[in-house]
Computed example of a mutant assay.
Amino acid sequence: MKAILVGASGAIGRCLLQDLLNDSNYKEVLILVRRKSDIEHPKLKQLVIDFNRLSDYSADLKGDAVFCCLGTTKSQTPDQKEYLKIDYQYPLDIAWMAYTNGAQSYHLVSAMGADKNSSFFYNRTKGEVESELKTVPFKSIHIYRPSLLDGKRTQKRFGESVLNSLMQLINPLLMGSWKKYRSIKVESVAKVMLAQSLNDQKGIFIHPSDQIQMLSDVL
């Protein structure tokens, strides 16, 4: 199989890239990047692109499974138009191009609270991209909704670091229906994304954070 990965420089994306490169089911991993990565591997292929001109690279987006780990924050991208490009438009444009070229499955990292009817811009954007993605006729679509991510970031987020430290104390107290609010390791999300891409399933699947953790625990 051949994988297409966008967002390989993010916390989940970096873990997923290593998992894909180490998995014998994938013979090639194509990553879409703004700047060439220092990572070298015989299975790795890098496509340096201008995301504002995605259609110029449509012929190159050929693979069996597409993994989208794109995402930004309000502090990183305060302009809502730019934010929408990254969290909404790019994932959908890539989806349609890859589908047209024969891709069978699409794996999107969304977020807990995604809701296209939400009054909160972040949650609404995540909900809208999920809704639109479901119209692309892939054989299977997997949407992952992790809670607070626990993992190394390329850019330090002080508030998130403090919250993650606090969550280490709170996590064991969150039981039953509250389990989905536990923080989750980025490695767990990446591991489940890889595993789900190897399942011969048809349909649209939503994976809440507690389910992702449960699946990760048995892998």
Rank of each mutant, 00 (worst) to 15 (best):
H142C: 04
S147N: 11
E130I: 01
R153F: 03
F121H: 00
L173W: 02
T125D: 01
E132R: 13
L133E: 10
K134M: 14
W178Y: 06
Y144I: 01
D150C: 01
S197P: 05
D150Q: 05
P146S: 10
E128R: 00
A114G: 09
M112E: 09
Y181S: 08
S110Y: 02
Q196G: 04
S118V: 03
T135M: 15
Q201E: 14
L198W: 13
A114F: 03
D150P: 00
L148W: 05
K191D: 09
Q196E: 14
K139M: 05
L163K: 07
K180E: 13
K116A: 13
I204C: 09
A114V: 03
W178A: 15
I170Y: 06
S188G: 05
Q155W: 11
P146Y: 05
L133W: 03
K179T: 06
F138Y: 09
E132I: 08
I141H: 09
K126Q: 01
E130F: 04
G151W: 00
S119N: 06
E132W: 05
M175S: 14
V189E: 05
L194S: 08
E130H: 06
Q201P: 13
E187G: 11
M112H: 07
L169G: 12
G151Q: 00
W178V: 03
P146D: 12
V192P: 07
Q155F: 10
M112A: 15
R145I: 09
L173I: 00
E128W: 00
L174F: 07
A114S: 09
M175C: 14
S177W: 07
R153C: 10
A114Y: 01
K139L: 06
S183C: 11
I141Y: 05
D115W: 02
G127V: 05
R145W: 03
M193S: 06
M112F: 07
R124S: 08
S110K: 05
P137R: 13
L173N: 00
I143Q: 04
N123A: 15
A195Y: 06
L108R: 06
S188Q: 15
K126R: 11
G113H: 10
F158I: 09
N123D: 12
L148F: 08
V136Q: 08
Y181T: 02
K191I: 08
K116F: 05
E130P: 12
G203L: 03
L194A: 04
